[in-house]
Each structure stands twice: as C-alpha cells, then as structure tokens.
Computed example of a mutant assay.
Amino acid sequence: MTLSENDIRAVRARAQLLDAPAADVLAVTRSVAAIQAQSSPAARLAVRVRSRGLTTSDVDASRAVARTWLMRKTLHLVPAADLRWLNRLFGPRNAQAGQGRRRQLDLTDELCEQALNHLQDLLPGKALTRQEILDGLAGNGIALDAKSQAPAHLLAYAANRGLLCRGPDDGTEPTYVLLYEWITEDDTPDDPHGELARRYLTAYGIATAEDFGAWSGLPLGVCRKAFDALELTPTSNGFALRETDLSASSCPPRLLGAFDTYLLGYRDRDLLLDPAEAKRVNSGGGMIAPTVLVDGRIAGVWYTKRTAKQTKVVIEPFAALTRTAITGLESEVDDYGRFLGEPAVLVS
C-alpha cells in the first residue's frame, strides 16, 4: 500500500498514543513496548505526553511497571509482567557484551560473582541506593570507587543476571531491589522474539526489520525471522501489522521529553526529523534533546528555565510556527505544569 509521508507520520504518531492519550501508566508502557528510562525525568515526560490526567507521583508510584537494562543495554521502563521474559531475552546478551568493559574496570568474573553473592544477602526486603549497596559490599571486603563507572556496570551486570532491578526512586536517587521480590508476574510468550516484534510494530506503526534491529539491538537475522513470522502489510517505508488501521489524522502539537521513543524507534529518522536539524536534536554522546512535535514531525527543541514563581518552557523552533501550532503548544505547557505540580508558561 502506498502512503504519503504525512500518512506515515500520522500512523506512527497514533501508534505512539500521541493523538489518543491513555488513562494510566501501564497502558502507556504496554502500548509503546518500552520507554527508555536512563533518565527518570525524561521517562516521566514520555508517560505524560501519552496519558491524560496523570502526575509525576502516579508514574513513580506505579508497581505495574518496572525498570531494568534491556534493549541496547539501556535502562527501560516496561510492564512488570514482561520484565522477566525480556530480561531472559536481553540479559545474557548484555552481560556478554559488557564483559570487556567490566574487565577494564577491574570487575573480574570472580569479583562479580562474589559481589552477586553478597547482594543476595544485602537486598532481601530492602530497596537500597547505590551508595548503600557500595557500603554493604565494602563491609564484605569488596571496595569499589563510587566516582568510577564500576558500580554502575556491576549493578547492570547483576540486573542482566536476573538478580535485581530498579526499585522506587528515593527522592532523586534510584534504588535497587531483588527482582524476584519486586516482580511476581511472568507472562512469558511462547515465541519471545516474535512477540517482541509484534509489540514493536504495534508501538511504531510502520517500520522495517532494520528499524526493529536498531531499536532492540538484536541481530538483523533474528529481526528478519521475527518479522517473517508475523502477518504483515507492505507499505511505504516498511511494514505494518495486518490489523493496523492505516488511516489516521495528524496528531496535535506535542512536547516530547528527552530520549523520547517516537524518535528512538527507527534506524532512519529523516521522515520525522529534517537531517539539516539533526544535530540540534542529537548533539552527540547518545543525547536526544526534548523536542517539539508538529504534524508528526520534529519542529524544534525546548528546555526549561525555573524561577521561584514559575517554570518557563522555552521553545526554539526550526522555522516559524503557525498560530494553531502555538495554541496547541500552550495547552501542552499548561498540562506539563499540571503534571509537575508547578505553574508553567510558554516562551517562544
């Protein structure tokens, strides 16, 4: 089926819930397959823009979702019932891929195994911060430099091995919990690769196996096989699930947070982002700036300036915005302030 670029963007935006917000945190996370969550504030904003009436505390308090290192060795927020099977899918691969870096940090296989044994004694019934974990390990003869990358890589390794996952944030500090205590559900599918591909296409609307590989980090051969097992409709720029409605109207203006999944799901982002503006969004080092979405296309970047009285949301558009787009973004800023519980005003 031949679709225009505007049609493709509309289908993708709808798949991402950017035109029809969900009612709760789980519904958002389930619909978009996974939310990149190495930045907790950014993950909260990913939920805000795809939901209706939620607040930051709603996101933080939800036990229906959980965080661990999954796709591309990066922290993701996923439905709690999916964390175990996703961890079995990505954990061994991530642990193997990180072995060289662990050795550079003097995290030998022997030391890691000793640390994991001690973590099983430290964590039962608790949610500990990184520093509390380091103090506990030091008390057992395993001293790690808190200013180095060794603690982060050790905790990621423990998560990849299925021992722990992220727990609730303690203020701005994340905590870690035993996975088997925190996650009691396990909805393991018969075909994990096929199920992940199905969820990916549900979340990203129209895409290719190469896009799936870029998003997941899985080998291209695995991704193609998973796509081949699905009932797909060929379209412009890729494939859609057979049941996907390929008619959609353009979504309203949106404020996307940093690392938003709308951009991270495709190997080629040219349809969503003008290549001439790409460096303003991705300046390097894996950073993806908060962006302005107009008619399904990235139309600018934004940031905040906080004062004692209010938060200013400063928009830097790539080109002049229409009055309709500005009005829509004013509504977005109002909702952003409501979500955070602080007054917010648009500055452009």
Rank of each mutant, 00 (worst) to 15 (best):
T2V: 13
L3P: 13
L3Y: 03
S4P: 08
R9P: 12
A10S: 15
R12H: 12
D24T: 09
V25R: 09
V28L: 12
T29F: 02
S40P: 03
A43L: 09
V47T: 10
R48K: 09
V49W: 11
R50I: 04
G53E: 12
T56A: 15
A64C: 12
A66T: 09
R67I: 03
T68H: 08
L70C: 14
R72Q: 13
K73S: 15
K73Q: 15
L83V: 05
L83K: 06
N87A: 13
F90S: 09
F90H: 11
N94C: 09
Q96P: 00
A97F: 03
G100F: 02
R102C: 04
R103M: 02
A115T: 01
H118F: 01
D121K: 06
D121V: 03
K126Y: 02
L128T: 00
T129L: 04
Q131T: 12
L144Y: 05
A146D: 04
A146L: 04
K147R: 10
H153R: 11
L155G: 06
Y157S: 13
A159Y: 05
R161H: 08
C165T: 00
R166L: 04
G167T: 05
G167I: 02
D170S: 09
T172K: 14
E173A: 10
P174A: 07
T175R: 00
Y176K: 01
I183W: 00
T184E: 11
E185T: 04
E185G: 07
D187T: 04
R198A: 07
R199G: 09
Y200F: 10
L201D: 05
Y204F: 15
I206Q: 00
A207P: 01
T208L: 07
A209Q: 04
E210D: 11
F212K: 06
F212E: 10
A214M: 03
S216Q: 02
C223A: 11
L232S: 04
T235I: 07
F239E: 12
F239M: 14
L241S: 07
R242M: 14
E243M: 07
T244E: 12
D245M: 05
S247R: 12
S250G: 09
S250H: 08
C251K: 07
C251V: 08
P252V: 00
P252M: 08
G257F: 05
F259K: 06
Y266I: 08
Y266L: 06
R267I: 07
D268S: 11
D270V: 10
D274G: 13
P275E: 14
V281T: 12
I288P: 10
T291E: 07
V292A: 13
D295N: 15
V301D: 11
Y303I: 02
Y303A: 14
T304Y: 08
Q310Y: 00
V314E: 13
P317Q: 12
F318I: 08
A319M: 11
A320Q: 13
A320W: 01
L321V: 05
T322H: 11
I326G: 07
E330D: 14
D334P: 06
E342V: 07
E342H: 13
V345Q: 12
V345N: 10
V345K: 13
V347D: 15
S348C: 12
